[in-house]
Design a protein around this nucleic acid. Structure first.
Lengths: 234, 234
DNA sequence: CTTGAGGCAATTGCATGCACTTTTTGCCTT
DNA sequence: AAGGCAAAAAGTGCATGCAATTGCCTCAAG
């Protein structure tokens, strides 16, 4: 452990801890059920236990960690049932965003969406999963913003974060990339012609398919203990 | 410490603080923009600053309070725009719950919903706002639970909490009670016949109307400074 | 009278310490 | 040998203390 905390960005120490720990959960570096020891985390990030505690509290409020009184915190473990409910919610939230986007996006937003979407076609041809993932994220973010409703935006982003650990490997399924793009295309087309209902349906279907694709991995992922280090240590 | 903190219930001190402060915000006892001084709050509840700080952090993560680094915390102040976005989200969330309820409620849930709904008719006749409010809350909770989706349930309850301060006075509008019941009736009828689309639409319309009714008060409420009287009609 | 710099009081942010709860370990009993 | 109990170890929960930042007030200069 190095002495400085320059690894993490700006803000108060608590915010840094929230981001640091939250990121590790969202990226799957910390696995569901894994114990989050205050002392170890404090030592790991070279801060005292206080900001770590506060961070765990906030992450708990966000649903990313689970806190048992006097018994420590663990990375939130989601049951199959709860996972399904989150995916279903995600589908509905995306449907709302797509519907609103179809009705409300400015013409420059529409243009941006289409350009980026067309740009991502290239990644599909090249089979560049990593790059496509970037476009994919951006695509969905555009939908959330395009809804012009900050609260829906927040709810959606939040839900998406919590699902992130389970969506990780979806694009590794053969042919998933191209299918994803086609699904996006349906959404874009509907939005561009202002058809809210169709956009909503297309978005809902899209997420539902992702859900099924991810569930495969989620099941196999769940009971597995932490083995090798997926992401390199910092 | 002068031993008694019996005003508040069980759980850890932090949880008590979260509930205590959160309640005061949700019930409108603490007004948007009001300063939340750690020391005062700690003294007020006879605890140290630490649990108060943690509570403020969690409430901040929930969106109920706003935290400026090194500049203290205030009760989250919602702009008209954000308020509108929350009401709109609420309408969509309730629509989802109603739709799912229509499709998924067990027969005993359906029976319970109808019985309680019919029971509330009495409150309308008597013009008992307070009592009706209880039935109203219970009615909506049944919808949220009936959706059989814990995540949607959580999102909806959360959004509802954040809107609570602004819904407070809605039933004081003349005739609102009877109209509310009729709107509920539309929802119940649709659910009982399993018509998800109709239930969703009815629920969305219901919230939209509440939104408009509440907006009246919200506008007048917003710029007003904190005074001793919680809800005064001007 | 306005404006700006400097210092002071108040408040936040974090570290540390202590008490209490849970968990583990080792010994004793059956 | 297995089960249970007790004491110790570990870890959480809260309080307090101190450094750092902010905002305010004063006072002087223009």
């Amino acid at each position: 452990m190095s002495g400085k905390r320059s690894l993490i960005r700006s803000g108060t120490t608590v915010d840094q801890m929230v981001r640091a720990i939250g990121d590790r959960i969202v990226t799957g570096y910390l696995r569901p059920g894994e114990k989050l020891d205050e002392t170890s985390l404090a030592a790991r990030f070279d801060v005292s236990r206080t900001p770590v505690r506060e961070a765990l509290g906030q992450l708990s409020a966000m649903g990313l960690v689970e806190r048992r009184p006097n018994r420590g915190a663990i990375v939130a473990v989601v049951t199959q049932e709860h996972l399904a409910s989150m995916f279903e919610s995600m589908a509905e939230l995306e449907a709302i965003c797509a519907r609103f986007s179809a009705e409300r996006m400015t013409s420059s937003e529409r243009r941006g969406l289409e350009i980026e979407h067309q740009g991502s076609a290239r990644m599909v041809q090249l089979g560049a999963e990593e790059d496509y993932e970037y476009f994919n994220t951006e695509f969905h973010s555009r939908l959330y913003r395009g809804a012009h409703n900050t609260h829906i935006h927040d709810l959606t982003v939040m839900t998406r974060s919590r699902l992130a650990p389970f969506r990780r490997a979806q694009f590794m399924l053969p042919g998933r990339l191209a299918k994803s793009w086609q699904e996006h295309d349906l959404i874009v087309t509907a939005i561009l012609r202002g058809d809210g209902a169709a956009a909503g349906k297309a978005a809902r279907d899209h997420v539902s398919i992702v859900s099924e694709a991810s569930a495969v991995f989620a099941v196999g992922d769940q009971p597995k203990a932490a083995s090798t280090t997926p992401v390199t240590a910092d």
